[in-house]
Amino acid sequence: MKTLPIFLAFVVSSLTACDNNYQSVLQAEKACENWARQGIAFTLEPSGYLESIEYKGATTNRFCEKKEIQYIGYVFDLPDADKPVFADELMKLRGNAKPIQKFRW
């Protein structure tokens, strides 16, 4: 009789763990990219050797990274709202990012 509650708890936990499972790598990647686009937008300014490219664009404080059989969505804190972030500063910010979402296939 004690095994039934344990079995039900296992089934419920495995069902909730599968919420972000996708049919393919491509679907998981697209889902993660859509999630990343919903972050806080900021302007990226080139710095150092990137200044020669004349790139000025907008991005968000979220990004995705492929690891093993999943994409992991990371979030990092921005220093100040409405101020541009320089490319070399972005590398430091991304280094302190925290994993938030998992997109498995």
Rank of each mutant, 00 (worst) to 15 (best):
L4F: 05
L8G: 08
A9F: 15
F10C: 12
V11N: 05
V11E: 07
V11R: 00
V11D: 09
V12I: 15
S13H: 09
S13K: 04
S13Q: 09
S13P: 04
S14M: 14
S14P: 00
L15T: 11
L15P: 02
A17N: 09
A17F: 14
C18M: 12
C18D: 12
C18K: 12
D19L: 09
N20A: 08
Y22A: 11
Y22Q: 08
Y22G: 02
Q23A: 15
S24W: 02
V25E: 15
V25Q: 13
L26E: 15
Q27E: 15
Q27S: 15
A28D: 12
E29F: 03
K30R: 12
K30M: 12
A31S: 13
E33H: 10
E33T: 08
N34Y: 11
W35V: 03
W35I: 01
A36L: 06
A36V: 00
R37P: 01
Q38G: 14
Q38K: 15
I40A: 12
I40S: 10
F42C: 10
F42G: 08
F42N: 06
T43D: 14
T43R: 11
L44E: 12
P46R: 02
S47Q: 05
S47F: 01
G48A: 01
G48I: 01
G48Q: 00
L50T: 07
L50V: 08
E51T: 14
E51R: 07
E51N: 10
I53W: 12
E54A: 10
E54H: 11
E54C: 06
E54T: 07
Y55T: 03
K56P: 00
G57F: 05
A58D: 14
T59M: 00
T60C: 06
R62M: 05
F63A: 03
F63R: 02
F63M: 01
E65I: 02
E65H: 07
K66Q: 13
E68N: 13
E68W: 07
E68Q: 11
Q70T: 04
Y71C: 04
I72P: 03
G73E: 00
Y74M: 09
Y74P: 06
V75T: 11
D77T: 15
L78C: 05
L78N: 02
D80I: 07
D80L: 15
D80K: 15
A81Q: 08
D82F: 15
K83Q: 13
V85K: 01
V85C: 06
A87K: 00
D88I: 04
E89I: 05
L93N: 03
L93G: 04
R94T: 11
G95F: 03
G95I: 04
G95M: 09
N96F: 12
K98T: 15
